[in-house]
């Protein structure tokens, strides 16, 4: 309990929000809309987990939104050109992975600060896309949507897939040697190096994995609608980072869990529909979102302060 105070405080705030919704707006808990909500958030969850891993190795990636858009648009164009889904998905993952590789090489090998590198790639990729597509939608062929399944099968598959992926990542981070390397490098790169870990390789690998996850997430989003908007994913980086840090991933590296990220993302994802269900005017939304983020992290601060005073 003590160790996971941040995660629990987020879960607590989320539970409070849900309880309030159950009291004031029980309609929130209908199966079909809730399933849709979860399916819509599944890509963000995957991206947020990737970002969390990057933060755990004491780096940051703010270019995920642009990577997401690039993967989505290229995947959409390929699908529109008649490629089968079985070929489009690996290509999307590959593109995501190589974008991650570029970031990773610049960060790990040139030793540039990751926030700067990914700030540059955020802007550069987004503007490239603007230049090439000028905002035009990509219309997809029918068979792409829901991977050729029925809608509810597709939605369950996406939600299940995202949760499965999170479970695998959670297990891997906890039980695989490679997972522990992330924490080691994030806590103290020099100590990790002395312990026989190669911090650069770990950092590079994390960025590549992050990119590949973004590619997967982009596909999870593409299959949910018959059109791709090139602007898709803009602002995703902020949501993913917010989910990660609210969910207890320490920005200073070496600490955090994928489960915390899941709780953080669910909290953030619920705010907007909750506003709709509680009939609160939209112009209050950002202020309330800010307050909820602060509330979720303040618990930890207050507690530490009390311990400190003791």
């Amino acid at each position: 309990m003590n160790r996971w105070i941040r995660e629990w405080s987020v879960v607590g705030v989320l539970a409070l929000l849900l309880a309030y919704l159950a009291w004031r707006a029980p309609a929130f808990f209908q199966l079909q809309p809730l399933l849709s909500l979860l399916a819509r958030e599944a890509p963000s969850l995957v991206v947020a987990c990737g970002v969390a891993m990057v933060i755990i190795v004491r780096q940051i990636d703010i270019s995920v939104g642009s990577q997401f858009s690039v993967c989505s648009v290229i995947a959409g164009l390929l699908a529109a050109a008649g490629w089968p889904l079985a070929a489009v998905v690996p290509v999307a993952v590959l593109i995501g992975g190589s974008l991650g590789l570029v970031n990773g090489l610049l960060v790990a090998w040139l030793g540039l600060p990751s926030i700067v590198v990914t700030l540059a790639t955020l802007v550069a990729l987004r503007q490239c896309l603007n230049l090439v597509r000028q905002g035009e939608f990509v219309n997809l062929p029918e068979r792409i949507q829901w991977l050729g399944l029925s809608q509810s099968q597709g939605q369950w598959l996406l939600v299940g897939g995202a949760v499965g992926l999170v479970a695998v990542l959670a297990w891997g981070l906890r039980h695989l040697a490679a997972g522990r390397w992330l924490y080691a490098v994030g806590s103290d790169a020099e100590a990790a190096r002395l312990a026989g870990i190669r911090p650069r390789a770990v950092t590079l690998g994390t960025f590549v994995l992050m990119g590949a996850l973004t590619g997967i997430a982009a596909m999870m989003n593409v299959v949910q609608s018959p059109q791709v908007q090139p602007l898709t994913g803009s602002g995703l980086e902020l949501k993913a980072i917010a989910a990660a840090v609210v969910g207890g991933v320490a920005i200073s590296g070496g600490r955090g869990t994928v489960w915390g990220v899941l709780a953080g993302l669910l909290l953030l994802a619920c705010i907007s529909p909750a506003m709709v269900h509680l009939h609160i005017d939209a112009y209050w939304e950002k202020a309330i979102q800010g307050l909820i983020i602060l509330a979720a992290v303040m618990v930890e601060g207050l507690r530490r302060r009390r311990n400190h005073a003791r």
């Binding site: 809309p33 809730l34 909500l37 059109q227 803009s234 529909p273 269900h277």
Partner: peptide
């Protein structure tokens, strides 16, 4: 009245929430 930031995906989520609420 719900904003969607000119994002089709966000409009889809907003519309889903509107219908259930």
């Amino acid at each position: 009245v719900r904003p969607c930031d000119d994002l089709k995906d966000r409009a889809q989520s907003e519309a889903t929430a509107l219908m259930s609420a």
